[in-house]
Simulated scan of single mutants.
Amino acid sequence: MSLTKKRKTLDDFFINNRPSKQTRTPTATKPLQVHEDIPGLRVLTDFVTVEEEQALLRFFELQEWRTDLARRVIHYGGTYCLMPPRTATLEQRIQIDKTILTAPPIPNQLDFLISRMIGQNLYTNATAPEYCIVNEYKGRQGISAHVENFRFKSPVCGLTLDQGDWMRFHELRYPNDGSVRSGKASQAERTNKVKDVWMPPRSLLVMEGEAREKWQHEIVRSKRGRSAPCWRRISLTFRTDKCK
């Protein structure tokens, strides 16, 4: 190997493999796998390559994570507020609740993912996602059953990186109930119909229609079994505001 050959950096990889936001070009990928038991739910396997996955994981390790929740989180787009610690006084909780933080926009390093979703006709250039939440689940960490905030359009798309996981879906008796922002997600009336869906590494989960509006979803800790101590999943959830 020549000692004068320039070694590629992470930015070099992304820059050479993504279009700009102004010139997104649809990219053909594999067909979406439809889950007939949950109308509107689809999974696209191998949405990113192994090389792209590793580059994304390295990129996120360099970012600043939110650490006030049970799991590490990164927000892109919109605003968010911090979670008061359990030891906080009432006065401290009120002050923290009033603090609204503005998240940075989705970085250019993720733009090739949006272009690829446009290529699958999940979005258009005019309706491309402006919001992305990055969650790191480790060990037995999970998230309780909920429906995505109804201020966001269909579809809601989630990319799985590192290791795969199960997502459990609960059918609701009525649509548009049990939103994560309603504070009443656990009280939403269900039909008792439950489906577990496997999300392979590098796959894209797409929720629209009934899957988006009439099914709560959750990450169940107990599904990981003995592998939990060494387990980690990074998820990227992309959303578009209804006002867009």
Rank of each mutant, 00 (worst) to 15 (best):
L69N: 02
D177F: 03
L90N: 09
K223W: 12
F150S: 13
W166N: 03
V73R: 04
L110T: 01
Q95Y: 13
M1S: 15
K195D: 00
I106N: 02
K30G: 14
T79V: 13
E171D: 10
P200W: 01
Q63N: 12
S20K: 05
E36V: 15
K21N: 10
T160V: 07
G225K: 13
F169P: 01
E210C: 11
N125R: 12
Q120A: 02
L161Q: 08
L82C: 12
M117Y: 06
K214H: 11
R58N: 11
R181C: 09
Q92Y: 09
L69K: 01
A185L: 07
E218D: 10
G119Q: 00
L44D: 00
T4A: 15
D162E: 13
I114P: 00
I15G: 01
I234W: 05
A185I: 07
V220F: 02
E61M: 14
E148L: 06
A103L: 12
C132G: 02
I234Y: 02
T99A: 09
P31Y: 04
T240V: 11
R93S: 01
Q92F: 10
T4R: 15
T102Y: 03
G40H: 03
A28E: 14
F150E: 06
K184R: 08
P107G: 07
F152D: 03
F59T: 06
R58I: 07
Y137F: 08
K184N: 10
G77I: 03
D241N: 14
S222N: 07
W198P: 08
N121E: 13
S115A: 11
R24N: 03
S203C: 04
F112R: 03
S20V: 00
N192V: 10
T191V: 11
P129A: 14
R24Y: 04
K244V: 15
S154T: 14
C81M: 10
R93F: 01
S186L: 05
T45R: 09
G78Q: 07
A185H: 12
K138S: 15
L69H: 09
F150K: 07
I94E: 05
Q22Y: 05
L3T: 13
T160L: 04
L44Y: 01
Y76L: 07
W198Q: 09
C81I: 09
T67I: 07
I114K: 01
F47M: 05
N17Y: 06
I133V: 11
H170C: 12
F112P: 01
A88Y: 10
L44K: 00
D37R: 02
E208R: 05
C132I: 05
A28H: 15
R212K: 08
S235T: 07
W65I: 14
D68T: 11
D46N: 12
A103Q: 08
L101Y: 14
S179G: 12
D165T: 14
R202Y: 06
R66E: 06
P19A: 06
R232E: 15
K5D: 13
D177E: 14
P84R: 03
Q187R: 08
S144L: 06
